[in-house]
Design a protein around this nucleic acid. Structure first.
Ligand SMILES: [Mn+2]
Ligand SMILES: [Mn+2]
Ligand SMILES: [Zn+2]
Ligand SMILES: [Zn+2]
Lengths: 126, 126
DNA sequence: TATTTAACGCAACTAAGTTGCATTAATTGT
DNA sequence: ACAATTAATGCAACTTAGTTGCGTTAAATA
């Protein structure tokens, strides 16, 4: 179930994703907002924002949870399947609009792909 | 540093990977071998087998660690970058020999890709 | 303003993986 | 075969991301 009440916590979290378009890890949000809200609240609000189609989640290189804004999703339709790019220098993670073509795998039906690319981002790439 | 002594634990673990070619999660090995060796030993041996180029590791859909046999790797050269496929029905994970082409991403230098495909495997695909 | 209940804070918990250290056993030399 | 060396092991304690239960707070609505 998604968000029913626009609480202070919801507004603060939405704001974090509004002022920057990069993905943010749950861990980062916890340390950034620990004085403003409890980590349990952070996890719960993020989950609801994902249900609502405002955010989508994925796992970074250590298997930790990251969230980023959706573009054009709703609670009904989550079509935010795309690769993510994590910079090995500054740690920043971005959603990529570039499509990666998954070839047909013999005898298997591929329903989902989870692609994490790593390397140097535009800022760290000299 | 890799393995220096062919201990009982090393042999048992190597055997697990010998009798089946699918990937095995650290968690599975711990529950499968808990009467034969300590989980600390399992994690440590797996790490060394990876150093030696016998195994490679990757993260499954929950961010948990999986290991699979390498083919043609050594401690010097680990060229085992390939996609993995996790069956959403039976949970089995396989290494895929199929290559996924990563397109050039503008202004970024991609050094590594981590691709996890999900769907139905050959056994579960009716 | 009073009522309803979704959302919150807190503390306790879960589980994957790690660390330190005393003990064991594989390897090597005699 | 035996003793010396030290890599590897077991165990307990720890770390940390994420979860759960429950009493309290504060949004929504009337
Ligand atoms: Mn994204
Ligand atoms: Mn593999
Ligand atoms: Zn960067
Ligand atoms: Zn299957």
């Amino acid at each position: 179930m998604g968000i029913l009440r626009k609480t202070k916590s919801v507004k603060i979290l939405l704001d974090e994703f509004e002022k920057k378009s990069t993905a943010i890890s749950a861990i980062t949000l916890i340390e950034r907002l620990h004085s403003k809200m409890n980590k349990t609240t952070i996890y719960r609000v993020l989950e609801k924002l994902e249900d609502d189609g405002f955010l989508h989640s994925f796992l970074g290189k250590n298997g930790h949870k990251w969230y980023a804004k959706c573009s054009g999703c709703s609670s009904d339709e989550h079509h935010d399947i795309h690769p993510h790019f994590q910079c090995t220098d500054c740690g920043k993670v971005d959603c990529l609009s570039t499509d990666v073509l998954i070839p047909n795998i013999p005898n298997r039906k591929v329903d989902m792909s989870q692609i994490l690319l790593q390397g140097k981002c535009e800022d760290c790439y000299t």
